[in-house]
Write a protein that binds this DNA or RNA. Sequence first.
DNA 1: TTGACTCATTTAAACGATTAACCTAGCTTT
DNA 2: AAAGCTAGGTTAATCGTTTAAATGAGTCAA
Lengths: 347, 347
Amino acid sequence: MANATLKDVAARAGVSVATVSAVVNGASWVTDATRGRVQQAVTALHYRPNRVARSLKTKQAYAVGAIVSDVTNPFFTEIIRGLSHALQETDRHLVLCDADHRFDLADAHLHRLLDQQVDGLVLIGDSVQEASLARHLEQYPSVPVVAIERDYGLDGVSTLLVDSEQGAHDATAHLIEQGYGRIGLIAGPTEGAGSQTHGRATRTEGWRRALAEAGRPHGDNLIARGTFRYESGVEAMDELLRRPPRPDAVFVANDMMALGAMHALRQAGLRIPDDVALVGFDDIPVSALVAPAMSTMAMPTRHLGRAAHEVLQDHLTDGPGYVTVRRTYRASLQVRGSSLARVAATE
Amino acid sequence: MANATLKDVAARAGVSVATVSAVVNGASWVTDATRGRVQQAVTALHYRPNRVARSLKTKQAYAVGAIVSDVTNPFFTEIIRGLSHALQETDRHLVLCDADHRFDLADAHLHRLLDQQVDGLVLIGDSVQEASLARHLEQYPSVPVVAIERDYGLDGVSTLLVDSEQGAHDATAHLIEQGYGRIGLIAGPTEGAGSQTHGRATRTEGWRRALAEAGRPHGDNLIARGTFRYESGVEAMDELLRRPPRPDAVFVANDMMALGAMHALRQAGLRIPDDVALVGFDDIPVSALVAPAMSTMAMPTRHLGRAAHEVLQDHLTDGPGYVTVRRTYRASLQVRGSSLARVAATE
DNA sequence: TTGACTCATTTAAACGATTAACCTAGCTTT
DNA sequence: AAAGCTAGGTTAATCGTTTAAATGAGTCAA
């Protein structure tokens, strides 16, 4: 026999469907006697409300969608975990889409998600393009959107960011404190003007500010660029090594590249941190596992997931006319082996 | 203005809702003329069918649920990616739940997912308990379930496994070939009798078989046990080192522990692979990044995700009375630095 | 006794699709 | 010319809820 419906329960309890619905939804006006009969019927028939029917009537999807640029990125999976747990508590589903770094895929997902299947949307990382999002937002103005670690220049989108400038500054200042003198930078792709950052200060800025404050060199010849991937970290480090005088420390804009840099240094026969110290950004789990362990800037990842849900929740209860937020979190320095204090001996 | 419904489109095109529905669903009997008028109205009103209403009527959820024991595990995220892509193509959603290694959470998720919200279920890793699954299966016999890398002893559940015995055998045989003589094992938690394996041959068996075939020692004193986590790998390796004669190679049942073992060896001042060679299992991305790179058994991860969807798809089209499958995939050896051929010099 | 008010419950109309069953010309067929 | 088809629709029931409005039985003040 198929699943029991409200009707079945009503019949068994000898009441109307409205009463059963009331009991199920915890309305207060039902007599204890009837409530008892209904509950008995409910358990006897193993009744569970049909969420789809409920959704149709209430126009709530009881689900939020998430589009992530790369599910295999450990930084993002922590966020997903946070989201998943928060949603679980409010009895909502998480509909997850992996864009695999492809904008066309992300767009398709966006399209599908918005077919009134979700109450809200979380965009994690650089998953969907701004134009694409703008277009859809126009058609579904009622669906709140919160973006994590990606700054769309759209109002109507709440934004959760980590303060890259500050983080980069802290990381670089730490290297200075530890006694390093000439501090290089491995940066991400063409920061600054791109739509990615939308005028917000970048990691490059933070690095530069720290060095300027300390009166240290911070010219472009100390900078190499990568694509945030491991291999590009290797190449960038190699390039830095080819430009004497070589730095005795390097701040790397993310951990994946930092690991690549570590590899390059090892290949070049240089010791870490004795010859060249390293600080990364993101605190992905591997960073603690390599030898020497990588110093890095930890993101409030799990918290970002929860926060995303909280913001969404607020937007949903506030209804249309909710006011978007923009929050900036601070990354915190994790000191590990790769940036141990320089010992006296200057080569 | 809210989203247009079938009715609105029908009114604008001057036809009945049934006709519009037919056009939208690509029925063939509609005249080209009317079809044109309808399509015009559809685009004019930006009509998109309400999937919830459709679901209610057709009793299909157009979604599959997945419960994963740990979203942050890179091995699982690859599977999720595969699933996500496959689902995208059949216009279904992925509802993802992270159990965070907690059975109570997994159970709650299972409960919620089955409230007629999904067409099928994918269980990834050791997420839900057998008893829990059995109980729910009884109540929702129509929802097909496929389990990945976890062998429930339940019929009605399709199972996708990787051949652990064979993989362990290959890894161990490889070490023998490379010239190593005394080969240890770091195994997972109490394999064998547990519900986890359900009588299927384990990694320990594979290790033992390879050594037996080669006439090498394979006693219990060569075995240490861990919990599949990094720290336990460190401890297990330490323990192995405390039991002379020490092995000159170790097969480790998963990569996380292998990385831990690598750390322990380094602490002990031993070189890899010169003093002790290592082969892991899983081929998580980090394994290629550490130095020396970790040899390991690669899983057909992405393929598992796709396969899970294919099996589910088959079950769905076959309707009730579908026949469950059980497939075993083979892990393939990735030779890297940690198991380079032993050079002549025997200490 | 009669309204006016509660209180506990029922009735019935939605929500937005799908789909079986019915309708109506216009053409064959016999 | 009557019956039978077919192509091209339309009508209306239905999926399982929620919920505003209606109902009916007490209670109580006037």
